[in-house]
Simulated scan of single mutants.
Amino acid sequence: MTAETIQTDRIPPHLRPAMQALAEAGARLAAIIRRGGDLAQPVGTNADGDGQKALDVIADDLFCQTLAWAGVRWLASEEQEQAVALDPEGTLAVAIDPLDGSSNIDTNVSIGTIFSIYPAEATAEASFLRPARQQIGAGYIIYGPRCAMMVTFGDGVQHYALDPEDDAFRLVATRRQMPDCALEFAINASNYRHWPQPIRAYIDDCLAGSDGPREQNFNMRWIASLVAETHRILVRGGVFLYPSDARKGYEHGRLRMLYECAPIAFLIEQAGGGATDGRTAILEQGAPTLHQRTPFVFGSAEKVARIAAYHELPETEVSALFGHRGLFRA
């Protein structure tokens, strides 16, 4: 491991080796992405049945190799069926999505890495299948026009950027705070017909604009890369919704609690926002299995609370709202 892969003065001492390893692997992966090549070539499926691209496998191998020398006892990867034992003397457990947004590789849209750090326990199950609020670190690396890392250790969100001169992450901001409000929402509107009624009612009210009950005009954003969506919302506010829906395989949401939702929720709350499954705070929950999926709503606290309020309305009342405001209906 190189000596200076990340500026460490704001990182808790016991987490510095793991953060150095994550930064080193992230810098190396950023270089691979810059070089290009056939990184989007299909190579099979991961442990959960999702299609894998060549870059998924490269990223998984890279982070596993670097974290093996960083005091990490257990590593749980979205690309692996079971958690991997690394260092029996390690004190940390790391859960990681090595490459988020791989469907966007060949379109050159920003992709990323999401990670979460817990204290290691005697077994992998005890280390990872616990309340998400027991995380002691979480963050992501975004491989965009400027490679950046956002990370929290429970005291605000720190922003680092990769310096191309020496491939080291330098501190940009010690405390990134989410703006109070932005008139933007992110959701895949093509699935409107499958959504539960509280989600449709909320989106209908946004789409009604200044003539509707919100009395404001909203813009919609959808990148289909969780890291890219998160980075935009951390920088300028707004809300992201990936609800459960009526399609087979989507009944319990689609994003993974351990590898995606828990670390993003930790970051968002530390930046002053909120993160729920539509009703309940993500950080008050835990994953019963390594690859458990969940609905996910996060962003500006006021918007997340409003969406939860729609879910608390009696079904008959939501149905009436939907019938009156269903703008997609003829």
Rank of each mutant, 00 (worst) to 15 (best):
M1S: 06
E4A: 08
T5D: 03
R10W: 02
P13M: 10
H14Q: 13
L22E: 01
A23E: 00
A25V: 05
L29P: 05
L29W: 01
A30I: 01
R35L: 02
Q41W: 11
Q52D: 11
D61G: 08
L62K: 03
Q65N: 15
T66Y: 14
W69Q: 15
V72Y: 14
R73C: 06
A76T: 07
Q82M: 12
A83G: 09
V84G: 05
L86R: 13
L86Q: 11
L92C: 05
D97P: 03
P98L: 01
P98E: 06
P98Q: 09
S103K: 14
V109L: 14
S110G: 11
Y118H: 15
A120M: 10
T123G: 07
E125G: 07
F128I: 07
L129Y: 01
R130C: 11
I136F: 12
I141C: 06
G144H: 14
R146N: 02
C147G: 11
T152C: 08
H159D: 10
Y160C: 02
D163R: 00
D166C: 09
A168Q: 06
V172L: 03
R175G: 02
R176L: 14
M178K: 00
M178F: 03
P179A: 12
P179T: 09
D180M: 10
D180E: 11
L183P: 02
E184N: 06
S190A: 12
S190I: 14
R193Y: 06
R193D: 13
H194I: 01
W195E: 09
P196K: 07
Q197H: 10
P198Q: 11
Y202W: 15
I203E: 11
D204E: 05
D205G: 04
C206S: 08
L207P: 03
L207E: 15
D211V: 02
G212A: 02
E215R: 15
N217K: 10
N219T: 14
W222C: 11
W222H: 10
I223Y: 08
A228V: 00
E229H: 10
T230C: 14
H231C: 04
I233Y: 09
L234I: 07
V239A: 08
F240E: 01
E251H: 08
H252C: 11
L255I: 04
L255H: 14
M257A: 05
E260V: 02
I264Q: 06
L267K: 02
Q270C: 05
G273T: 03
G274C: 05
D277T: 08
R279P: 00
T280Q: 15
E284A: 09
G299L: 04
S300C: 15
A301M: 05
R306A: 12
R306M: 09
I307K: 09
I307L: 15
Y310G: 06
H311S: 07
L313M: 13
V318I: 13
A320I: 06
F322D: 08
G323F: 11
F328A: 13
F328V: 01
